[in-house]
Computed example of a mutant assay.
Amino acid sequence: MTNSATSSTDLRFSGRVAIVTGAGSGIGRATAVALAASGARVLGVGRRKEALQETARAHSRIAILPLDIRGDDAAQTVVAAAVERWGRLDVLVNNAGATAVMPLAETDRSVITELFGLNVTAPSMLAHAALPYLRESSGSVVNVSSTYGHRPLAGGAHYAATKSAVEQLTRSWALEVAADGVRVNAVAPGPTATDVLVAAGLAPEAVNSMLAYERDRIPAGRLADPGDIAEWILRVADPAVTHLTGQVITVDGGLELV
């Protein structure tokens, strides 16, 4: 990736500290690397230690914390790890999440609970734990939503509902903490070339079929690369962008237009 997010002359986050969840792969890894390349000290958080180690090898300014952010004390542990290591916190990227293919006829209570636990409750607790430090630094929260946070998804209604919740949290938090100098925005990716569908338990053939279908619908003619999304996460978190808050930026190659 050769965009401004990873340019060696782009140090817009110099002296800043960021937490990125779901940093072991995909959008989270791309975001952690892009923030580090732009001068930030980054704490990459995720459940898979080996995947996080691979992310950390991509840049010397990335430290890692293998941890399940759904745990009762996880949010405090994550924030404390960053603050104790570097003395401040400027950016929280709530990227970790899961999807599920679950038609209404196959609805499973445990799947709903797990989706909301990871996609809604965990980022809420992280934002809560980070808020005192973000107030001190006039920092920002970037939530990762989805184009399906504001459009229907047949067969994936509960996933879409979690992302719709993320977008309402974004707007409501932004209104609540604006007077404190803290900004809250969201980036909503369209179909992106990551392993999220494989992680959801779909067979490779089904994943390839779904991605081909999505690719054919996107006016830009391709799936997003994780770096495309990371660039927009950096843009909305940029310390120089002081007047943007409560916004959901959709990055989907024009899919919303069709």
Results as ranks from 00 to 15, higher is better:
Phe116Asp: 02
Gly117His: 09
Gly117Gln: 10
Ala122Glu: 11
Pro123Lys: 04
Ser124Phe: 15
Ser124Arg: 07
Leu126Cys: 10
His128Gln: 15
His128Ile: 02
Ala130Ile: 08
Tyr133Gly: 02
Leu134Pro: 06
Leu134Asn: 13
Arg135Lys: 15
Ser137Phe: 11
Ser137Ala: 15
Gly139Ile: 11
Ser140Cys: 15
Val144Ser: 08
Ser145Arg: 02
Ser145Met: 03
Ser146Tyr: 03
Tyr148Glu: 12
Gly149Asp: 09
His150Gly: 07
Ala154Ser: 14
Gly155Met: 10
His158Val: 14
Tyr159His: 12
Ala160Met: 05
Lys163Gly: 04
Ser164Cys: 09
Ala165Leu: 09
Val166Pro: 04
Val166Phe: 10
Gln168Phe: 12
Gln168Trp: 12
Arg171Phe: 00
Ala174Met: 00
Ala174Phe: 02
Leu175Tyr: 10
Leu175Ser: 13
Val177Tyr: 11
Ala178Asp: 05
Ala179Gly: 13
Ala179Trp: 01
Gly181Leu: 07
Gly181Glu: 09
Val182His: 04
Val182Ile: 10
Arg183Gln: 12
Arg183Cys: 09
Arg183Pro: 05
Val184Ile: 11
Asn185His: 06
Asn185Glu: 05
Asn185Leu: 07
Ala186Asn: 06
Ala188Tyr: 01
Ala193Arg: 14
Ala193Glu: 15
Leu197Lys: 09
Val198Ala: 15
Val198Asn: 12
Ala199Arg: 14
Ala200Pro: 01
Gly201Leu: 01
Leu202Asn: 05
Pro204Arg: 00
Glu205Ala: 15
Glu205Pro: 06
Val207Leu: 07
Glu214Gly: 00
Glu214Arg: 14
Arg217Val: 02
Pro219Asn: 07
Ala220Gly: 06
Gly221Ile: 08
Leu223Ser: 08
Ala224His: 07
Pro226His: 13
Asp228Cys: 07
Trp232Phe: 10
